[in-house]
Design a binder for these strands. Sequence first.
DNA 1: CTGAAAGCGCTTACAG
DNA 2: CTGAAAGCGCTTACAG
Lengths: 355, 355
Amino acid sequence: MNRPKPKLSRIAETLGVSVATVSNALSGKGRVSPELVERIRATAAELGYVPSVAGRALRTGRSGVLGLVLPNIANPLFPQIAQAIEHAAAGAGYGVLIANSRGEISTQTEAIGRLIERGVDGIVIVPRRGTRIVEAGCPIAVIDSPSTPGNTVSADHWEGGRRMGAHLRELGHRNVLLIGNNTTSNVQSDRIGGLKAGLGPNAATETLWIERLEAAGGAGCPLGLVEKVRGGVTAIATLSDLTALRALTELQGAGISVPDTVSVTGFDDLIWSSVVTPRLTTMRMDMGSIAEIAVTALVDAIEGDRRGNGGEETSGPVSAPISKVPMELVIRQSTGVAGVGSLKAKNRTEGELAS
Amino acid sequence: MNRPKPKLSRIAETLGVSVATVSNALSGKGRVSPELVERIRATAAELGYVPSVAGRALRTGRSGVLGLVLPNIANPLFPQIAQAIEHAAAGAGYGVLIANSRGEISTQTEAIGRLIERGVDGIVIVPRRGTRIVEAGCPIAVIDSPSTPGNTVSADHWEGGRRMGAHLRELGHRNVLLIGNNTTSNVQSDRIGGLKAGLGPNAATETLWIERLEAAGGAGCPLGLVEKVRGGVTAIATLSDLTALRALTELQGAGISVPDTVSVTGFDDLIWSSVVTPRLTTMRMDMGSIAEIAVTALVDAIEGDRRGNGGEETSGPVSAPISKVPMELVIRQSTGVAGVGSLKAKNRTEGELAS
DNA sequence: CTGAAAGCGCTTACAG
DNA sequence: CTGAAAGCGCTTACAG
């Protein structure tokens, strides 16, 4: 295994042709005779030729790598996003370099800087809430929410909220508790706005913000849901499956039945949502499409530079033909018709487990 | 923003010195007079000089990038791993390129191939279970389990299991249900072995494998835990917090109290474990240390090549001074003394919520 | 302590 | 259709 990696010139020597011809044949660009192309291809394969990315990058000025900046890699949504972006990028011939903002705004800037230093051709960023990325020295695809200025593409969070609200309204819920994390996220305000619209003018809603509750009660503190249910709430619509899970277990731990006494909904279809009891009704993003659109927009900007405006660098947020991707309502067992169970009928029979 | 990026020669021209001197000054390698170094540094900073990774890579033969291959990016443990590796790599001056095996063994090989093509200097791999990576053309750090041949570093899963088992034994549990995912994972067999050892010879154990249950009952099917509890099980020790969550909600959904009637434990301290009710007792890996050790071993192999054996490439699994990193037992509310609650005392009082 | 020169592997006009 | 040559930006012996 100590043979040096074959390079273009090895193939050229082996065949007695020039490196230029080999390069042209392999890239399919230059006009090389079909027979020669065939021989060159065969020899390259035989020798196990792998082009040097460094050589190519130096010559073309492009690295073939995209950066991915996330607000917090620990976010449970991260796997979905990373997987989708990686897949879309690989399909377009790009690699993906990860960076972590660790939730802090200064780190986000640093992360972008490190990616630039590494020579990425473009960046996909899910911005920390409240941040606005304007400049970065390379094209940027922003995935946040349609109401964020500079947003490239994202799920249609408002419409997702509306449809979830409508689902609950149709089940007869008129007294609904909304739970979000923080008030400063565009994604969350879109979802809340949509939920209220979907629930309609006849529903009473109250909104709880976890960030505030925890500021007082500490991380992981109880949300006080039992009282809310006693107070007449028949459905709890959360803005994340993590919150939904928290609500579900808090209720169950107190002997309150979901969905018989109270329905619970989430957002994002996170990993556990389909395996907990009862499975969570949620609203799923189409991360595959979002990633595809973001990466395509980025690649267009990157490769368009070369062809189009003679070296003029597109830098900063790019736009995409479609900026709102529909969400998909996933109805599972955690939602049911309002008023089926009362607070007294606390226990579910074992039979229900079998369904 | 249309100024071309300054390169080494720009600095050299500005100062009227040679590019060699600038390079030496900036890298701190050559013997350049302190004053000149200072002036060069200042000019570089002023011009906003960012070295070209392509140029450097082409010349040095190293890309400064590590690849990260995961069995399945959708794995809930992925965020922890990716974050830790990214952090350790950044500390060592390396970037991290992600690749996804999507759970398939052929894809794992392809993923490695793509990373090699991208010119990574080394690869961190969490192998798909049952796989053994021997060759890849570059140094590899394998993170799996101490009982996997070729393993570079990992958590001490067996000892983690033993301590969890001991914790349950100390709480008086003698009839314990173990739940794993699949029988072919070294990590899982280590954990199971440790659990049994920790529970001691006086405990009766039975092991359930989710993969088998789901082969019959479908994904997300009930685990039949109520019957097990009726049969006398007082504790359920799972090999993952995802399974623990599944068990917890299945029990709570059936009106069985955790931990009064039955204790539940997990592994890995996943994101939700500290916010569900009751919070999950779990065993946490020290991903920071694991990542640090893996990256250091890789970097030693990569950079040692240059200094040491004159171009001889280390290729394949590298070894590390420490290969087993201790796990940390996190005791929370999901475990309690055996026999406190009976199956009849199903409901927890609201007061418990406040704790 | 400083500089001139070679060369890493590739692609791209350009000439033939 | 094919080839000779330049050059992307850097680092590294080597010479002075």
